[in-house]
Design a protein around this nucleic acid. Structure first.
Lengths: 186, 186
DNA sequence: GTCTATACACCGATAGAC
DNA sequence: GTCTATCGGTGTATAGAC
């Protein structure tokens, strides 16, 4: 309904994102979003027809930004290093947990999540394939497999670190760092 | 409060588990649990002081069962194969997503989740270490790192498969299957 | 665009009878 | 152990004034 891209529209998505991160999806209500940005609850329904729509838009905005950022990294001197650092340092496992749980029950969100995973994987495969080709070598597994494995590891490493579990982390991180150094130096 | 281990106690945990799996934690209410097992809402508060306690007990019962099962596998002819099959086939990523999201906001649950991860990792490390020693070889990475990596992969493989994403899955599964065959034959 | 007001349903938790 | 009844609060969503 309301104008996408307007100041209030963005403010509402910002609020929704913060609430998801800090309090979880059970706390993501139209009242909470309104209060957080200093408007009345009714206004949320002027900008979004349902709460589900607000959630989907929140994820979509995040996904678009992230994909754009990742594509930008393809042109840098060390794309693999950049992509890995993003995965491991700027990922918020709490926020991702909420979206993963929500995606199990919202068709609209699920479609967005699927699209995001597929596109981000494609970008990462492109980066790894190019890096391997430039050095005229393979990696013992097809790039798409290696990318899938690294993405899984990054997500679990981040999530467990937030919980306070670290068994095996140094070993996995070490192996990936060694691979990155071998591929891109520094 | 109420007698842990009684028929109603188990029925309530069963109900809670089903609701989490099917509808998510936002739908896990005392009324929903009561209705599902055919009792009145008040009775839920006779067995559990708070909803948080019910959630913690639901996870704990599940974790205890799972750890027992995993320990039992250490004595089988192919422990690595058994442990991997459990990870990849009987894991319900939806249920895990809910517990992961809940653990971000419930101290009691978080402690249980941490304990479970640490204990299951220890069992898996024991299995892998024994298997490597029996064959007098190493694996290019310390066992705990390999276990961490495999666990991450299993979780993401299951979760993505439920979403319908499969890019890179065959490659990762193939590599792990090859490793298992090399270690335990068949 | 933004508001007041409200319909209707559901929540956790408790009092207290049987 | 199990129930009826209820308190005070919150949820989505809508009607309609300004």
């Amino acid at each position: 309904m309301g104008p996408a891209g307007s100041a209030n529209w963005h403010a509402m998505l910002d609020g929704a994102e913060d609430i998801l991160r800090e309090e979880g999806y059970a706390a993501l209500t139209s009242r909470a979003v309104a209060e957080r940005i200093g408007v009345k609850q009714r206004l949320v329904y002027y900008y979004f027809a349902t709460m589900d729509q607000l959630i989907v838009e929140t994820f979509r905005r995040l996904a678009v930004r992230e994909l754009e950022r990742m594509r930008g990294m393809l042109a840098t001197p060390r794309p693999l290093r950049e992509l890995w650092d993003v995965c491991i340092h700027t990922t918020d496992a709490r926020l991702i947990s909420e979206f993963m749980a929500l995606a199990n029950r919202s068709e609209g969100l699920r479609a967005e999540v699927i699209a995001f995973i597929e596109q981000s994987r494609a970008i990462q495969v492109e980066a790894l394939t190019a890096a391997l080709a430039a050095r005229g070598r393979g990696a013992g597994m097809a790039p798409v497999g290696l990318v899938m494995l690294a993405t899984s590891a990054a997500l679990s490493l981040t999530r467990e670190a937030e919980l306070g579990v670290t068994a095996g982390h140094a070993e996995v991180t070490g192996a990936i760092e060694a691979f990155l150094r071998e591929m891109e130096g520094e």
